[in-house]
């Protein structure tokens, strides 16, 4: 259930929020003190919960949005390499079926589902090892939901670590290997998806059941 610290957890993990205590390790490397772009460089991808507030520069073209966060790697002789940016856009638009398939139109003019596909393409269409997927299917059409789910499954099959945060119980149950429940800012329970039913999950979420909190 939203408002129990999931947003803050994701922000802390992605580097958008300063960490007060604790340690974050990725593949054995300590990234606690690393900033957003350093974490991204070490293989962290992040689908933000609100694509309009965090994920897309609405007035930037699809091509420019597809390199957001990766802009450093597109520099050639001091300037951005427009050709490579366009080539990347073409590739991603095709791979992720973004419509309309034009690199130049501003992200603002896309449907919600296609805007989300731009974010997904950017975050998953590059090498990564850990993915923070926050509400990845919020406000998108059914077709896009299925597409996004299959992308997430593919990434899991490739051995990527995915932290999925979702308000959709079905989504959580359908995609997860392990499920953690956050209640009032704490992770109250971590369990294997196989031992979870919708009812027991609901009770943990309401805070009515809190045996053996993790």
């Amino acid at each position: 259930m939203e408002g129990n610290g999931q947003t803050e957890l994701i922000e802390a993990l992605s580097g958008l929020r300063p960490i007060e205590s604790g340690l974050i390790r990725m593949g054995g490397h300590d990234v606690t003190r690393k900033n957003v772009s350093e974490r991204r460089d070490s293989g962290l991808s992040h689908i933000p919960e609100d694509r309009h507030r965090r994920g897309l520069i609405l007035d930037y073209s699809i091509a420019d949005n597809l390199v957001l966060g990766l802009q450093d790697s597109y520099v050639q002789r001091g300037l951005l390499d427009g050709k490579r940016i366009t080539a990347n856009a073409k590739e991603q638009i095709e791979a992720f079926d973004i419509r309309p398939p034009s690199a130049e139109i501003p992200a603002r003019n896309l449907s919600g589902g296609n805007q989300q596909k731009v974010v997904i393409a950017r975050e998953m269409g590059r090498p990564f090892s850990v993915l923070l997927a926050s509400q990845p299917t919020r406000g998108v059409d059914v077709g896009a939901i299925e597409f996004i789910h299959s992308e997430l499954r593919k990434a899991r099959a490739d051995g990527k670590a995915i932290l999925l945060v979702s308000a959709e119980l079905n989504e959580v149950l359908a995609l997860s290997d392990r499920i953690a429940v956050m209640y009032r800012g704490r992770m109250t329970r971590v369990m294997a998806a196989s031992e979870v039913t919708e009812e027991s999950l609901g009770e943990y979420m309401m805070g009515t059941r809190k045996d053996s909190a993790a």
Binding site: S14, L16, N35, V36, S37, R40, H46, P48, R53, R54, G55, L56, I57, L58, D59, Y60, D64, L68, G69, Q71, D72, Y74, V75, G78, L79, L80, G82
Partner: peptide
């Protein structure tokens, strides 16, 4: 050149349009 063809310009315009997205973009 700086505004429209450089990385810094890309970042500068991003900050001007949507600072929180820019922050997310590192």
């Amino acid at each position: 050149l700086h505004l429209f063809r450089s990385r810094r310009g890309y970042e500068l315009r991003a900050v001007g349009l949507q600072p929180e997205v820019a922050e997310y973009g590192g």
